[in-house]
Design a protein around this nucleic acid. Structure first.
Lengths: 212, 212
DNA sequence: AAAAATTAATTAAACGTTTGTTTAGTTTTA
DNA sequence: TAAAACTAAACAAACGTTTAATTAATTTTT
């Protein structure tokens, strides 16, 4: 178990500012001076605390990756609910996390597009692998019980789940406009998205994994 | 009908180099000197031909947006095939275009994430709107004939289609690794992806839009 | 408990590069 | 021979990072 690194108040301010700007304009589009101003600290503090802009990005990941791991262990033990219900809870959990941490997820999306091997790519890789294994376990339990189909392509299923939510986040302004939801405030719209996405994914996957 | 702007051989070399690098490292991550070197031209030629780096990005879009519009007009007239078959052809068409123009699509994905209103965001907006309308028309034809369900959320369906393919492209290195497909060469793997994605999306949407 | 010494936090300014763009001149094309 | 294509060099601005100096906090010594 890796113990999470403790960050001071000022360090957290910098990390949050970086997260916001990286999500908005990308890594190269955000200057350390912009980040410093957003965090209301001197520019030199970034090098002082994190060493470099690159390392600051790693700190953003360090702070967040713990949070976005889906929780499946307790879910597996619970025998009071069906396997399909467990999958549905997982979907809710994922949609929820993604929407409430949009900014970090945007950074992840951008970073995973880059071919070049960087320190952050490896972090994303491992995170995805863990999530994939969690779902694989859950699905094979359902398969053993006969509730789920035998030949489920878990990777493709994950691709659709992650992809659908990512795409919704990325194009949420388009989605708002085309559905005439511009009157909603941010919170209201997030609730709307969450509800729609959850229902949509549950519907999609139910037909994909269950035996009719 | 907007007549496409004619580009000289050298201009096309620059546009292609820009497309490659923008996809790989993002707009801000690619310097005009990198682009010039990749295109084997003098740096000044970029300003000379396009005015600015920003305008070069617009030229990349100008050159490509025509190509990636899905063709639905002829498909609508064809009465020899079912509506579901038409949808499937559309899926094949979309997957095909996305995979064969990965680089441009990566740029689109990155750009649509940016909140800030830029000239390119509007182009993406209109392109998506056109594609959305095309599918909407096709689906409502199928609804009239009774082949399709009445309440289909077209926008969510598009979100899943675009999202799934985008996510597959973005994380193709992960996909390769986790499926032990590293022995395949690029062409072979693209064929594999195309096949898998098409089948997966057809399967998903069939259950989503048809009456059992 | 006060003073001194040491370490940590913070700053403005400067560093050397790299950035996108322009200039002023040269070569090529028509 | 005039217009278009092309070049190397220069431009100022912005970049990430470092420096040197100052203030604040903590520890050690008296």
């Amino acid at each position: 178990m890796k113990t999470p690194i403790e960050f001071s108040e000022k360090q957290i301010a910098i990390i949050n500012a970086a997260e916001k700007l990286f999500a908005e304009k990308g890594f190269d589009g955000s200057s350390v001076r912009d980040i410093a101003q957003e965090a209301e600290v001197n520019v030199a503090m970034i090098s002082y605390y994190f060493g470099s802009k690159e390392k600051l990005m790693e700190a953003v990941f360090e702070k967040r990756t713990g949070d976005i791991r889906i929780k499946v262990e307790n879910l597996l033990l619970d025998s009071s609910i069906s396997h399909l219900q467990k999958v549905n809870i997982l979907i809710d959990d994922y949609v929820d996390k993604f929407i409430h941490q949009q900014e970090f997820h945007k950074i992840m999306m951008r970073e995973q597009m880059i071919n070049k091997h960087n320190s952050v790519a490896e972090l994303i890789h491992e995170l995805k692998k863990r999530n994939l294994e969690a779902i694989r376990t859950l699905l094979s339990e359902g398969q053993k019980s006969g509730e789920f189909k035998k030949n489920i392509d878990v990777v493709l299923m994950m691709t659709t789940m992650v992809g659908t939510v990512s795409q919704m986040i990325s194009s949420q302004y388009f989605y708002r406009k085309v559905n005439n939801l511009e009157h909603m405030d941010e919170m209201e719209f997030q609730k709307h998205m969450k509800k729609k996405l959850s229902a949509h994914l549950k519907n999609l996957f139910k037909q994909l994994i269950t035996n009719e």
